[in-house]
Design a protein around this nucleic acid. Structure first.
Lengths: 221, 221
DNA sequence: CAGAGCCATTCAGGCTGCTGTCAGGTCTCG
DNA sequence: CGAGACCTGACAGCAGCCTGAATGGCTCTG
């Protein structure tokens, strides 16, 4: 899952980023509404974590504007304000959940997982590709009825393929799924994970398109 | 994806061009606003990388004019200016993202990939030419329903033809698609690839225009 | 706290088949 | 018919890819 974190406090931002990353998601961290605006325009996020008090404005307005432009990305508000009125205003503005600082990182994890599950629950929960049966919300895969266990990184990669079956994903797009923007990757990690996925999903599940990337075999012509 | 790079610094331009090419996109590189203007009028780009300080003017004005004429191509600004006011002006002028020099090439890749992701989020258009059916996003070709396998180089060449069906491409234009700008090529490589493409696409798919270049047969008129 | 176990990452060795080159042929035009 | 332009089969070299194994970090457990 790809998460946009909008938070101007360095310490908290890092902690949250690390936590969400550990949970197996890719995190883009910005510190102003201007950058948040730019990010949501160029990237389709699955979840947004939004601080309310930012150097260049109020998160409420940003969220309202986001909703009026048709963006339905789930948003969890992170804030020091704990007034009931704030909570209501946040939910009215289109937030999906609300965390009051200081909050426990494991609590954050739980909310994130819940939003992800709810979000994934809407569109078809079970995806079938070839002999694979995938539940995006629960991160579960069966192959010929047999459950498969994927690690966080394996899942992050696989998710990219399953979301749009048959699509060609370049190496840099795959790196983008595993690591946040700007991260350096300087070995053949992607290849190693492709290899591991093949071992679990079946040898010919993922097709190498030499010089271009990889593609999930869909058995459609 | 087809990218227009507007950058007047030779070294940086080459580096960016090579990087984006490596990521699997087609890059047109121009060094002035005048050429940029001409390019956007003749070609539908999926992304523009725009330097702000150019010999014949300021990128802001160009971008504003572009937006007022209804062009919604995503634009990423590349600039040495890192003033907050510049950032805001850039976003106000209609930019989608902002990269401050010196930036890391992998970061550029990530931003470009983000745009590409959105671009591919739309149902990738199927292009039909003769008995060929081409999906530019997925890099797939079928001929009479039969899937074809093209290598990276073959695809790079073919992409040039399919993007503007019927256009005549000179030998040097084709070389530019395969090799970094300025690379010397001193054999008949292009001819060899044309030959290989013909073997896969059908003997009369590509027409030789003696002394001028090659053209894709469209069976129009 | 030691030890077991799992995971992410890196590295090296080996393999596949793409790439660029050449040679010798065919085609086209004046 | 000659010259130049173009075509294509063959091939060596190597880029790109695959994968087993090693490493180190982390968590869990007793």
């Amino acid at each position: 899952m790809r998460v946009l974190l909008v938070e101007d406090t360095a310490g908290l931002g890092e902690a949250v980023r690390d936590q969400i990353t550990d949970d197996g998601h890719a995190v883009d961290w910005v510190q102003t509404l201007a950058f948040a605006q730019a990010s949501v325009q160029t990237t389709a996020y699955d979840l947004m974590l939004l601080d309310l008090m930012l150097p260049d404005g109020d998160g409420f307005g940003f969220l309202r504007k986001l909703r009026t432009t048709g963006n339905t990305t789930p948003v969890i508000i992170l804030t020091a304000r704990d007034q009931v009125s704030d909570r209501i205003e946040g939910l009215n503005a289109g937030a999906d959940d609300y965390l009051v600082k200081p909050f426990d990182l494991s609590e954050l994890s739980a909310r994130v997982a819940a939003v992800a599950r709810r979000y994934r629950g809407n569109p078809s929960p079970l995806i079938r590709v070839g002999d694979l049966e995938v539940d995006l919300g629960d991160h579960r895969i069966r192959r010929n009825g047999q459950p498969l266990e994927l690690t966080a990184r394996e899942w992050a990669l696989f998710e990219g393929f399953i979301q749009r079956p048959g699509i060609l994903l370049s190496r840099s797009q795959l790196e983008d799924r595993l690591y946040a923007f700007g991260a350096e990757i300087e070995s053949n990690t992607i290849e190693v994970y492709i290899s591991r996925l093949r071992k679990k999903l079946g040898r010919d599940a993922i097709i190498t398109v030499r010089g271009m990337g990889y593609r999930l075999e869909t058995h459609e012509q």
